[in-house]
Each structure stands twice: as C-alpha cells, then as structure tokens.
Design a protein around this nucleic acid. Structure first.
Lengths: 129, 129
DNA sequence: TATAAAGTCTATACCCACTATAGAGTCAAT
DNA sequence: ATTGACTCTATAGTGGGTATAGACTTTATA
C-alpha cells in the first residue's frame, strides 16, 4: 500500500509517517519506480504499535527501545516492565504537580470578585507576590 | 543593574532574559556605552511577575496579555479572571487525562510477571492491540 | 486523448519556551 | 599587562510533530 492508505489505516498523518522514517522508527518495504513509498502489513502493525505507545506518552526514544527489545523474543522482558513502571511514576509525579497548580489557580479565582477594576484585582495581587 | 544581577535576583537565566526581550516581554531601561543592558527595580518586578505566571504554566502570549491589562488600572479585570479560570479548566482536563493514562499503565504493569520472556510479555501484548 | 484532480516526492520552515554554544568585546582585580 | 569574570550578538538545537512550496506521478473525467 502507498503512504496515503497507511496513513488512513494507522491514523497517523502522512507527514508524521515521513517524520518517523527520518527518526528511523519505520521504513517502507519498497519504493515504486516513481519513488513512491510502499508498505506492507507489518509496517501497519509497527505503526499502530508506535501510535499506541505515543498515546501512553512514551517518547520516541523509549519506543525505539521497545521496538528493539521486541526483536529478541527469547530475552527477558524486564527492561520493558521497568520502562513502563518508571513512566507510570513520572505520570504520577506530573499529576501531583498539576494538582498543586490547580489548587493555586483555585485560590486565585477565589481571590477575585468579578466587578473589580484592574488596580484592585485579586489575581494580579497574588501574581505580584 | 546589569543582566547578571537581574538574573540572580529574578531567578531567570541570562539567556532567558534575553529571550524574553526578543519576545517583547521585557526590555532594559538603558544601555551602557559598551552596549551592556541596564535594568531598574521595575524590570525586576516585571520579570518576577512573568516568572510567577510561568510557574502557573501560562503561555508567554497569555502573560503578554496580562501585562498589557495591568497597564490600565481603571479598566475591568474580568479578562484576567477569565484567563485564569479557563486555564484552571485546562489543567483539570489535563489531570483527568493523566489519571486515565495512569490507570492504563497500571493495568499494563499488572499484566506483567517479571520472569517472562519478551515473546510472552504482557505489556507488549497490550501494546500490540 | 487531453486535461484536471488527487496523490506523492523532497526540502525547508515553523511551533513552544527555552538552552547552549561560538567568537568577540568589556571590565575589575592583581 | 594580564587574567578572569562578565557581557554582547548570532546561530543551532531540543521534542514531536505540522505546514508550506514547488515538482512530479497517477487516476478519473470529458
């Protein structure tokens, strides 16, 4: 299949597929005489795997590592588990930070009564501290 | 004061201060004969304000808007409150997304028993769906 | 068969908010 | 006089894409 079909089937834009190629995550199995990229089913599943990983917010470097590990079915999968586990901790950390941020913003919103003028604005006063 | 002192007092790196200048958020009140930037106290409080806003994860465009609004002390501060309120909703949304993500990752971690080989890896199986 | 529309190609620039150099000039202390 | 600390501009890189321009190819329609 050509890149447009792969794009539709995978849900990745054409530009993103070409971008992943530059980043060495994926490559076409062939090219036509007119230099069009041609892909097969394994490209599609690889791309879907990448997309799944991206939806978990894994970096392209991490995905590269997962894809490499996948190539060795007989080795231990401990590194994969560690990667996911560490990533989950990063996400937890981020959630904690955002919750603090939200609390601060909630305080600011509370500090405001809508009819104020700028010079009396509770939000600006908190921001100036 | 020169840029190094402003950097220490504000907590912004020298490069960041020059970057904010290119982005028109701040500018030195003067230059020396040898073209060194010179700042006064108002630069410092402006920069601290910017930093405070950045710690709330406001964009530079939003901060520019806040700084402009600040210049008109007699106008209504409704736009400021709206901005903070909307931003808080974005943060809430992001927290919700990350909580879902965390739940997915937790499922994956659970799907794994440490001594598996790659070909049986529960994490990879979930990622391949 | 001619032409128009849709698809594809490469190369390059842009987004955000910085960060990090290179290479040159300036200032203060020894 | 020299060393070291400071500053200057200009430029490139980060991550994960997105968005063009301009050329070529393929497919569909008249």
């Amino acid at each position: 299949m050509k890149i447009g079909e792969l794009s539709k089937k995978s849900g990745c834009s054409i530009q993103t597929i070409r971008f992943y190629e530059r980043e060495k995550l994926i490559s076409p199995s062939q090219r036509t005489d007119s230099n069009y990229r041609l892909y097969d089913a394994s490209s599609l599943s690889r791309l879907r795997f990448i997309r799944q990983c991206r939806s978990l917010d894994l970096t392209l470097a991490e995905i590269t590592q997962l894809l490499e590990t996948k190539e060795s079915p007989e080795t231990s999968c401990a590194s994969i588990n560690n990667l996911i586990h560490d990533h989950m901790e990063d996400v937890s950390q981020k959630i904690a930070e955002l919750n603090e941020l939200k609390a601060t913003l909630a305080l600011m919103v509370k500090a405001c009564s809508d009819n104020n003028k700028v010079k009396e604005c509770g939000v600006l006063q908190l921001l100036a501290d």
